[in-house]
């Protein structure tokens, strides 16, 4: 009986503390403490994240496999470079740069960017998200797109704190990006994630002609997302007679597990 009363008191105290935490968080009294905690832990998390990235690579580190991975990465980089080149030519741009660095790419699209380190990810296994070490203090805003150093879109900002932000990856169920295919008709659609395993472009009108290998880019219809950010390549097309729209499975050019640096795109002249 005594134990039961004591345990009931402890449970009540726990409930009160949780409610107090929520209340203090909502009225922003806890913000300084939250900022201190995230700010202080950031640098440690960066180091540990890099170490764990290395550990993950060591798992695959057999001599012949390492060579194959390196060759694979070079081929992927070539594909991205060639796709970007194809993107430039397809949109009839005058400039003739073939090996764009990230800065040049964003300047042409009237954007600034913020380089960020990835410090963690997926801590609750409910969403495919990564945590980066830049936040409100660095001008990061909700729904800003996030790209790799090669200019490939990987996600959008879904939560912003003073010193850190959370990026929802494009292969997550809740991710939606307005996109278009780089073909003659600039076919539009919505790119959505699939259970963290892949991405699909949906709502493609049946009258539109798309082929495997077409490059998919952002359409620029979203407020903070500039156009022509590469999303991936059409891998497979699904065109069921009973469906109103066709769908395309998209293959991304990047491995979501190996991201350590990202660029947060800040579109200029947007409030």
């Amino acid at each position: 009986m005594l134990l039961s009363n004591k345990s009931s008191k402890l449970i009540l105290i726990a409930l009160i503390v949780i409610c107090l935490l929520i209340f203090l968080h909502v009225i922003k009294v806890l913000s300084p403490l939250e900022n201190i905690v995230t700010g202080a832990s950031k640098s440690i998390f960066i180091s540990i994240y890099r170490i764990s990235n290395e550990l993950g690579s060591v798992y695959l580190n057999y001599d012949s496999r390492q060579k194959l991975l390196k060759e694979n990465q070079e081929l992927r980089d070539n594909i991205i470079d060639l796709s970007r080149e194809k993107s430039v030519c397809s949109t009839e741009k005058e400039e003739n740069e073939f090996l764009r660095k990230q800065l040049n790419f964003l300047e042409e699209n009237d954007c600034d960017y913020q380089l960020a380190n990835v410090i963690g990810k997926n801590i609750d296994n409910t969403q495919n998200a990564i945590i980066v070490d830049k936040g409100e203090k660095h001008g990061v805003k909700l729904t800003q797109p996030v790209i790799t150093d090669k200019g490939v879109l990987i996600g959008k900002i879904v939560k912003v704190r003073a010193n850190s932000s959370i990026v929802l990856l494009i292969n997550d169920d809740l991710s939606k990006v307005a996109a278009k295919i780089q073909n003659q008709t600039a076919t539009g659609g919505i790119v959505e994630g699939e259970y963290g395993l892949g991405i699909k472009m949906k709502l493609i009108p049946k009258t539109e002609k798309i082929i495997e290998g077409d490059i998919v880019v952002t359409s620029g219809l979203e407020k903070y997302t500039p156009a022509e950010l590469i999303i991936g390549q059409v891998e497979r097309i699904t065109n069921e007679p009973e469906e109103l729209f066709q769908e395309a499975s998209i293959k991304s050019f990047i491995e979501f597990d190996k991201i350590t640096f990202v660029n947060i795109v800040k579109k200029k002249n947007v409030d």
Partner: peptide, 23 residues
């Protein structure tokens, strides 16, 4: 409580979701 609070800062879920789940 402490772990849940800090994990909530790094989670895309609404604040206190992880604290409540752990408790």
């Amino acid at each position: 409580m402490v772990w849940g609070f800090v994990l909530d800062l790094y989670s895309p879920l609404p604040f206190a979701a992880i604290v409540v789940a752990l408790m």
